[in-house]
Simulated scan of single mutants.
Amino acid sequence: MPDMFETPMGRRIAYHRTKGRGPGVVFLGGLMSDMTGTKAVHLEDWAQRAGRAFLRFDYSGHGQSSGTFTEGCIGDWAADAMAVLGALTEGPQILVGSSMGGWVSLLIARAMPERVAGLVTIAAAPDFTEDGMWASFTDDQKAAMERDGVVHLPSDYGEPYPITSRMIEDGRAQLVLRSPLYLPFPVRMLQGTADEDVDMSVALRLLEHATGDDIRLTLVKGADHRFSTPDCLTLIEKSVEKVAHRG
């Protein structure tokens, strides 16, 4: 059973924490995913073997945390992550952000850079509500959003994604690719060339936009959005190790 933490906003966040040396590693999952995913559990096992502190958790409305998905938005989930980081970790952390978690990690880096030792992003999806969703909505979908407050998008991972008007509107307040983005710590970005959810061009745009002295992008030919093959999981491990060493 996970431990539970109540945020200052009153949301109950489920988490698993591994004690160990720092800098610790915090895994930030993707949209409608939870902390039992392959990458999160694999990294926890790696951290335990390496003796490194590790934290995985569910955003509100995800997994075993309180709330429902349709109540939440990017700003809420970033606030959850910042509250967890502040209360359940000590010192600067290495953030490992998968898909939406990559966006959340960038919001954390912008809001509390002193708590970030480095970033490892996996198919990071910054600004996806605006550039990936709203920009691709048809006129009918935009009308449905205005009428019903929600549009259901098909998913390769199970039930359709209910995308609310609040998520779209809040996303516009969380954009990170429209203003300077300074990342003053080691950053390793990982991206599959066969990713059908987050196009390779997003990784290239983030690489070009962000500024910092140690930012690198690794493209893996043929890797998809899950990025969970044995080779991909090993690459994630090695990337975290390199960030920890350089930090």
Score class of each variant (00 low, 15 high):
Arg188Leu: 03
Asp148Pro: 04
Leu177Tyr: 08
Ile163Pro: 01
Met167Leu: 15
Ile163Leu: 13
Pro160Ile: 09
Asp170Asn: 15
Arg178Met: 10
Thr164Glu: 01
Thr193Asn: 13
Glu169Phe: 00
Ile163Ala: 01
Pro184Ala: 14
Ala173Ile: 07
Gln174Cys: 15
Gly192Glu: 05
Val150Gln: 00
Pro184Tyr: 05
Gln191Val: 01
Pro186Gln: 07
Leu177Pro: 06
Met189Trp: 02
Gln174Lys: 10
Val176His: 03
Val187Pro: 04
Leu177Val: 11
Ser179Asn: 12
Ser165Pro: 05
Leu181Pro: 02
Pro184Thr: 08
Ile163Thr: 05
Ile168Val: 15
Ser179Gln: 15
Leu183Arg: 01
Val187Leu: 09
Met189Ser: 08
Leu190Gln: 09
Arg178Ile: 11
Leu153Ala: 11
Gly192Ser: 04
Glu169Ile: 14
Pro162Arg: 06
Gly149Asp: 00
Leu190Lys: 06
Gln174His: 12
Leu177Arg: 08
Gln191Tyr: 10
Tyr161Pro: 04
Asp148Ile: 02
Leu177Glu: 09
Arg166Met: 08
Ile163Asn: 03
Thr193Trp: 12
Gly171Ile: 00
Tyr161Gly: 08
Glu159Asn: 12
Glu169Lys: 08
Gly158Tyr: 04
Val150Trp: 01
Met167Gln: 10
Glu159Lys: 12
Pro162Val: 12
Gly192Pro: 05
Leu153Pro: 07
Glu169Val: 14
Leu183Pro: 05
Gly158Gln: 03
Leu175Ile: 11
Asp156Phe: 12
Asp148Trp: 02
Val150Cys: 07
Ser165Arg: 15
Pro154Ile: 01
Gly158Ile: 09
Gln191Ala: 04
Ala173Phe: 07
Val187Tyr: 04
Ser155Asn: 10
Pro180Tyr: 07
Asp170Met: 07
Gly171Trp: 00
Glu159Ala: 12
Leu181Gln: 09
Arg172Val: 02
Ser179Phe: 10
Ser179Arg: 15
Leu183Met: 11
Arg166Lys: 13
Met167Cys: 07
Pro160Met: 06
